[in-house]
């Protein structure tokens, strides 16, 4: 799928203008997104949209080329028994597995995302992170998921964080950059908002909640705060930034709740895989099970769906 090139404006933002987050308000708003009644035809369309937005992910120390090839097969053929399904947006792997994924996905319109920059902790020098990024890009990754330096951010060294993201963005070249804030380590919604602003100004194409290695991973609360930051950034600069909640979104129902939130916060323009992604591994099968349930009326079992 073609990703539109986005020009980055790398000017350090005035962080004193970042608004404070009303946590009670966020919780109430999130509760409301979860109470929308979505009826059958809309639900089927929503589920298909969720499928098309998934970054099918495997980020384990035990990943083997075989496992990655298997994941790519799953990405191409989600559920052969049900024709007419979309394929996922991308597969997301470690840099050393990018070449394997590229070969396995040859001829298919599925992007390859790679985590980089000393994922998941980000605790390494800038030169190592740049090398990591270049390696993934050279191997064929079209999207880079970098981790923000939480240590530096929490220490208040915002300029370091900003410069680092800008440098990685440059190393990405034509590849899209997703910046992982790792909201589970930031502690407060105010910091999530501040980190979002910092990442967007430094040149991120996407902002992403989590690595999936820290609990809590993506929650609707942090995602809403990040979506609001994207909205305000768009009003300010006319630039669209994508959003990727990742980790812990494993049920179709929750996936649809995220879409409701996306629709009601950013609007239709963001309702495509170009601007919204789910980082997930088990979500796809739950969505497939729901889609089969919708077409047959019979509740499904994971036993009859390929794992990955």
């Amino acid at each position: 799928m073609a990703l539109a090139a986005v020009k980055s404006s790398t000017r350090f933002p005035d962080l004193s203008t970042v608004p404070a987050v009303d946590e009670v308000g966020v919780n109430e708003r999130v509760a409301r997104f979860q109470s929308r009644s979505i009826k059958k035809a809309s639900k089927v369309e929503a589920l298909k949209l969720v499928l098309s937005m998934i970054d099918l992910t495997t980020l384990e120390g035990q990943d083997t080329p075989g496992k990655v090839r298997q994941l790519c097969q799953k990405a191409i053929h989600l559920h052969a028994a049900m024709p007419g399904l979309p394929h996922v947006a991308a597969v997301c792997v470690y840099p050393t597995m990018v070449a394997v994924a590229k070969k396995a996905l040859a001829g298919h319109d599925i992007n390859i995302a790679s985590v980089a920059t000393a994922f998941p902790s980000g605790m390494s020098s800038l030169s190592v992170k740049l090398e990591d990024t270049r390696m993934a890009v050279d191997a064929g990754a079209s999207e880079i998921d970098m981790v923000m330096s939480r240590g530096a951010f929490l220490a208040g060294d915002y300029h370091y964080v900003f410069d680092e993201i800008a440098a990685i963005k440059e190393a990405c070249g034509a590849a899209h950059l997703k910046v992982i804030l790792e909201t589970g380590e930031l502690g407060t919604l105010d910091r999530v908002r501040k980190a979002s602003v910092l990442a967007m100004h430094a040149g991120a194409n996407f902002i992403k909640t989590s690595t999936g290695k820290i609990q809590p991973a993506a929650t609707m609360q942090v995602t809403l705060v990040m979506l609001q930051a994207i909205r305000d950034f768009y009003y300010e600069t006319d630039r669209m930034i994508g959003m990727k909640p990742a980790g812990g979104i494993s049920t179709a129902k929750l996936g649809v709740h995220y879409l409701v939130m996306l629709r009601e916060t950013l609007g239709n323009a963001w309702m495509t895989p170009e601007w919204f992604r789910f980082g997930a591994s088990s979500l796809a099968n739950d969505v497939l099970m729901q889609l089969v349930k919708q077409s047959t009326g019979i509740y499904q079992s994971a036993d009859y769906f390929s794992k990955d």
Binding site: I298, Y299, Q300, S301, A302, D303, Y304
Partner: peptide, 8 residues
């Protein structure tokens, strides 16, 4: 119906 048909 559902007790009898559920695939799981």
């Amino acid at each position: 119906e559902f007790f009898a048909s559920h695939m799981d």
